[in-house]
């Protein structure tokens, strides 16, 4: 998916804090359901940035050992991809190594934290998340 030009024009000019705040809030909300066994000790004190390269925007998140926050510090690890490729990864249509080999996904900084994050998402069973959503929306996500 590519944003239509006018939307992309607007997206490039929007502040980053509100979507990062929404993402942190959502993560805090679903954390215990999606990752009941995971203590995230390896993420404590780390800041992660997801850069959307085609929009020159992104979201920076940090984890203080208990909760996720919208971050402002320099990232320990940064992922970079187009919006379209993030969606491809979210839907598990391609694997991240494939996109990395093809230079569509970049990672910079603390590779070990980045790899741990990638492997956590790979190992995640998203079914408990669907139970929280309205049925039609959950079904359309499950279809992927």
């Amino acid at each position: 998916m590519k944003l239509p030009a006018p939307l992309a024009f607007i997206a490039r000019r929007l502040p980053e804090a509100p979507p990062a705040f929404a993402l942190a809030t959502a993560l805090n909300f679903v954390r215990s359901r999606l990752w009941p066994e995971e203590d995230f000790s390896w993420l404590k004190g780390k800041t992660v940035r997801l850069a959307i390269l085609d929009l020159e925007r992104g979201a920076t998140l940090s984890f203080d050992g208990a909760r996720f926050h919208a971050g402002s510090a320099a990232a320990d690890v940064t992922f970079g991809a187009s919006l379209e490729d993030y969606l491809v990864l979210m839907h598990r249509q391609e694997d991240p190594d494939t996109l990395f080999f093809q230079r569509r996904l970049m990672i910079e900084g603390d590779t070990e934290v980045g790899l741990a994050l990638k492997n956590l998402l790979d190992a995640t069973d998203f079914a408990p998340l669907f139970d929280l959503l309205p049925t039609p929306l959950a079904n359309s996500l499950r279809a992927h």
């Binding site: 080999f101 093809q102 230079r103 970049m106 910079e108």
Partner: peptide, 27 residues
């Protein structure tokens, strides 16, 4: 460590430069 300088990506293993990928070159 993967460090990106413009479109060029350097691969370092324990600080040792082991490869350099130009723009669009498969990694």
């Amino acid at each position: 460590r993967w460090d990106n300088q413009g479109k060029t990506m350097n691969a370092r293993l324990n600080g040792i430069l082991i490869d350099r990928f130009e723009d669009g070159e498969p990694a």
